[in-house]
Every structure is written in C-alpha cells, then in structure tokens.
Amino acid sequence: AEKTGIVNVSSSLNAREGASTSSKVIGSLSGNTKVTIVGEEGAFYKIEYKGSHGYVAKEYIKDIKDE
C-alpha cells in the first residue's frame, strides 16, 4: 500500500534521480511537503510528488498514517 510521508526538514530536501547521494539532484522539496512513498531502496524512499518520481533520504521523511 502507498504511504504518505512528510518532508521533515527546516529548509529543503533534495530529491534525486537514484537511491544514492551521488545521484543527480532533480528537485527540492520544502519542509512539511506531503509526498507519496511508493517504494524503498536502502536508505532511500522512492517518492511521487506532483506526478514525478524521485529518491529522498529516509531519515528526512516522517511517515504519517493514511487518513
């Protein structure tokens, strides 16, 4: 099942092309942005936001229960 997560940073969080800190940054998400978690790979979540996919470090995403 898809989960919703909240970007848990004070400034912004980089979204990357792949599940690695050396992957190209494809965008950034500001704190408290809601994202859909579609998968996980190592220390990263694969997320969907406004129709695009990217990878973000798990430690900066807070899971919330689907309402």
Rank of each mutant, 00 (worst) to 15 (best):
D66W: 15
K65Y: 10
E17G: 06
A57L: 15
L13G: 03
A15Y: 15
A57Q: 13
N8M: 12
A19H: 04
G51I: 02
R16Y: 15
E59D: 07
S10D: 10
E40T: 06
I61Y: 01
S20N: 10
L29Y: 03
V9M: 07
D66S: 11
A15L: 15
G18K: 13
G31N: 15
V7N: 02
K62R: 12
T4W: 13
A1N: 12
L13D: 01
V35E: 00
E17Y: 07
T36L: 10
S52G: 15
V56I: 08
Y45G: 01
L29D: 01
Y49R: 00
E41F: 10
A43P: 10
T21R: 11
E2S: 15
G39T: 02
I61D: 00
S22I: 08
E2H: 15
I37E: 00
K24P: 11
A57T: 04
G39C: 07
T4R: 09
Y49E: 00
G42Q: 03
V56G: 00
I64V: 12
S52M: 14
I26D: 01
I64K: 03
G54V: 14
K34V: 13
T21P: 12
G5T: 03
K62W: 09
E41A: 07
A43Q: 10
L29I: 12
G42H: 03
S10F: 10
S22D: 14
K58A: 03
A1H: 13
I37V: 05
I26F: 04
Y60V: 04
T4K: 08
H53Q: 07
A19C: 07
S23K: 03
G31T: 11
G39I: 03
I26V: 07
S28K: 12
K58R: 07
V56H: 00
E41D: 09
K24N: 07
E59Q: 11
D63G: 08
Y60P: 01
E67G: 12
V25H: 03
E67K: 13
E41P: 00
G18S: 14
K3H: 08
G18W: 12
G18H: 14
I26M: 07
N14E: 15
K58I: 05
Y60W: 08
E2L: 15
E48C: 15
E40W: 05
N14S: 12
G42A: 04
K24Q: 07
G51V: 02
F44L: 02
K50N: 13
I26G: 00
T4G: 04
V35W: 04
E48Y: 13
A43C: 12
G54R: 04
T4P: 03
G27R: 04
K50H: 09
K58Y: 03
R16E: 02
N8S: 11
N14G: 07
S11K: 12
R16V: 06
F44P: 00
S52W: 14
S20E: 06
G51H: 05
Y45I: 03
F44T: 01
I26C: 09
E59F: 08
N32A: 08
K3L: 10
Y49K: 00
K34L: 11
K46R: 09
K3R: 14
V7W: 04
I37N: 00
G31S: 13
S30W: 11
Y49V: 04
